[in-house]
Nucleic acid binder design. Structure first.
Length: 150
DNA sequence: GCCAACGTTGGC
DNA sequence: GCCAACGTTGGC
């Protein structure tokens, strides 16, 4: 059982959308490192839902993995913004997992708040230049952030 | 909108 | 295999 952090731009898909949908496939990951993290995810793993590229970037809630990695079909679709002609149906390059809503935090635990928390200084998301859309979270970091979220 | 940081591509 | 050029990410 592992913990993760998964980024999404709320303009595209937010925790509020997931609350409505209950469950969604996490498509569009086009980075090998992030894909490899998804491959190692197990059903029951939990993750923070991170809002990026928005007014208040930060952790907006909790989700859980409900289906292990399988081919990301959006890579096969020329009309999809994440289309990748190099990913073939008989040899898929990209994968996705299914995630389900767990809860939305009453207030986003902001990036600024995370940065102010000394015990989180080694968190991957806080490292300079970090752009990975999926990163592992340690159990210690998980607990600290849950307390910040109240 | 700016721009630093990063990953990928492709010529050589 | 190197590395310059390019595209993308994402905070500010």
């Amino acid at each position: 059982m592992a913990y993760w952090l998964m980024k999404s731009e709320p303009n595209a898909y937010s925790i509020v959308d997931l609350k409505r949908d209950k469950k969604i496939y996490w498509d569009g990951v086009r980075n090998y490192q992030a894909r490899n993290f998804m491959r190692s995810m197990q059903v029951g793993d939990q993750a923070f839902f991170y809002h990026s590229n928005c007014k208040v970037p930060g952790i907006a809630g909790m989700i859980k993995i409900v289906k292990m990695a399988y081919p990301d079909h959006t890579a096969f679709d020329p009309d999809d913004p994440h289309y990748d002609p190099k990913s073939k149906a008989d040899n898929p390059r990209w994968e996705m997992v299914d995630v389900a809503f767990v809860r939305a935090f009453p207030e986003v635990v902001s990036l600024a708040q995370l940065r102010e928390t000394a015990s989180l200084e080694k968190m991957q998301i806080l490292r300079k230049g970090n752009r990975l859309s999926i990163t592992p979270v340690t159990p210690e970091e998980w607990d600290i952030i849950l307390k910040l979220a109240k």
